[in-house]
Deep mutational scan, measured.
Amino acid sequence: PQVPQCKALYAYDAQDTDELSFNANDIIDIIKEDPSGWWTGRLRGKQGLFPNNYVTKI
């Protein structure tokens, strides 16, 4: 099955070790969508939390 993905609308710099940094237009694999607004994703071999208001699902 296809892994859900999202595209970064803005760059995000991780504020903690469990967060994921990314650049605008990066494509992130979505591991888990949480109602809190912090999703778990994977990018370039690293997994971490990121704010879903920085991305749009594709």
Rank of each mutant, 00 (worst) to 15 (best):
L43W: 03
A11G: 09
D26S: 04
T17A: 15
T56C: 12
I31C: 12
F22W: 00
K32T: 09
K32W: 08
K32V: 11
P1E: 10
L9I: 05
I30H: 02
P1L: 15
Y54V: 10
K7R: 11
P1M: 13
L49G: 10
T17L: 08
I30E: 01
V55Y: 03
Y54M: 10
N25M: 10
T56N: 12
D13P: 05
Q2E: 09
P35Q: 14
F50I: 15
I27A: 04
K7Q: 07
D16G: 10
P51R: 14
I58N: 06
K46V: 13
S21K: 07
A14H: 02
K32P: 00
E33T: 15
Y12I: 00
Y54G: 03
Y12Q: 01
N23R: 14
D13V: 10
W39V: 05
Q47K: 14
L49N: 05
D26A: 04
K46T: 10
L9D: 04
N25L: 08
I30C: 05
D16T: 14
D18K: 11
D26V: 01
S36E: 07
A11C: 09
L9Y: 03
D26Q: 07
A24S: 11
K7W: 07
G48Q: 01
I58M: 14
A24C: 08
I58H: 06
R42W: 13
G41R: 01
D13H: 10
A14R: 05
Q5G: 03
T40N: 05
E33R: 04
F50G: 01
D13L: 09
Q2T: 10
K57R: 10
D16P: 02
T56V: 12
A24N: 03
F50C: 00
P51G: 02
I58G: 04
I31V: 13
L20V: 01
D18F: 08
S36Q: 14
G45S: 12
S21W: 04
E33K: 05
N53Y: 08
N25K: 08
P51F: 06
D34L: 06
L9R: 06
W39Y: 12
C6V: 14
A8N: 01
A14D: 02
T17Q: 12
I30L: 12
Y10H: 10
K57C: 04
Q15D: 10
D13F: 06
K7F: 07
D13T: 14
D26W: 00
R42P: 01
P35T: 14
L49R: 15
T56H: 15
P1R: 05
G41Q: 02
E19Y: 15
T17H: 10
E19D: 04
G45C: 06
Y54F: 08
G45K: 15
Y10I: 05
G45Q: 10
R44K: 09
D16C: 13
P35Y: 07
T17S: 12
D34N: 14
N52T: 12
S21D: 08
V3A: 15
I30V: 15
V55E: 00
I27K: 08
I30R: 00
L43V: 12
A8S: 03
Q15T: 13
N53T: 07
F50Q: 00
G45M: 10
P1S: 14
T17G: 13
N25E: 11
D26T: 03
I30T: 02
